[in-house]
């Protein structure tokens, strides 16, 4: 069904009107990151339209905000830490969840449905319930102040990913697996050579979710890290906010630097990501 032109125009108009508040703040963020303090803190408040419009454009451009902001915080160290955490977490969470999802989707074994229900039920457990004993456990293990609390859990599967991947694996015909079995393939071989290659969009989606989660993780570093050389970007940015609360240009520069990589990544992965979600389906 193709809509008549006036309907399409109306939809475009609605979308543009709605999109403005969604992207304007980000434009403002980048603009502010290039302004001088004098432009950010005008002596008198802005009350006219021309003044307002001229506010959007940095005048003059102050590129120095970027190096200055990055000098306040050891950005390369934070970036390195964040990237390493992301790499380990993505690999570990996707791998362990895929194994479990395969067992739930393609194998029949005693206790399967009960265990699956338990795994799904853990999604509704508020993290707060676990927080304090987990904290005490890590402290007892001597893991406080190390990365271990931020990476080890990923090796034990993620309930949401298990659900997502199981749904996806179930769409792969059983005949395919059975044929491989008859050819003498082990379960491991079926997973590795049949199921996983067919599930790349779903795996990529889980990977991206985990990447976003780790990149944005604030509570983990807040609770467990105490050494500035171990901080991640998300936590480092908050430290920055605390220490330089009113230096908006530098804050915005730091926020821009923090945001751009993830936007670029989204652009690159967008198609796979949406495909992964759509084909998975959310229906039980």
């Amino acid at each position: 069904m193709k809509h008549p032109w006036y309907i399409r125009l109306a939809i475009h108009a609605a979308l543009v009107a709605l999109a403005l508040p969604f992207c304007m703040p980000l434009v403002w963020m980048v603009g502010t990151s290039l302004k001088e303090d004098a432009q950010i803190f005008p002596k008198e408040v802005v009350t006219t339209v021309p003044e307002f419009l001229s506010q959007w454009w940095p005048n003059p451009f102050r590129w120095a905000n970027y190096p200055e902001a990055l000098r306040y915080v050891p950005f390369p160290i934070y970036l390195r830490n964040t990237l390493m955490l992301c790499a380990v977490n993505v690999a570990a969470a996707v791998a362990s969840s895929a194994l479990a999802a395969y067992a739930f989707a393609k194998l029949e074994w005693r206790g399967r449905s009960i265990l699956f229900a338990v795994v799904i039920a853990t999604i509704i457990l508020p993290g707060e319930v676990r927080m304090i004993p987990t904290f005490a456990l890590y402290r007892w293990l001597g893991w406080y102040g190390t990365y271990l609390p931020l990476i080890v859990p990923a090796f034990f599967g993620n309930a949401f990913f298990i659900f997502l991947l199981r749904q996806f694996f179930r769409t792969i015909p059983d005949d395919l697996c059975d044929a491989a079995r008859i050819d003498g393939c082990s379960e491991w071989g079926i997973l590795w050579r049949v199921v996983l290659p067919l599930s790349k969009p779903a795996l990529a989606t889980c990977g991206l979710f985990q990447l976003l989660g780790t990149w944005n993780d604030f509570n983990g570093p807040l609770l467990y890290l105490n050494d500035q050389t171990k901080y991640t970007l998300a936590y480092g940015l908050q430290q920055f906010l605390g220490a330089y609360g009113g230096e908006w240009s530098k804050l915005m520069a730091a926020a821009t630097v923090f945001t751009v990589p993830i936007i670029v990544l989204f652009f690159l992965a967008q198609k796979t990501f949406i495909q992964g979600i759509s084909t998975t389906g959310m229906k039980g």
Binding site: P133, L137, F155
Partner: peptide, 24 residues
């Protein structure tokens, strides 16, 4: 095979969910 594949998840459930749950 099923239990081997889900074993990490089971360990995770016990250590990172069940234990903290009861301990809290």
């Amino acid at each position: 095979a099923g239990w081997v594949l889900v074993s990490p998840v089971v360990v995770g459930l016990l250590v990172f969910t069940l234990y903290p749950f009861l301990a809290s």
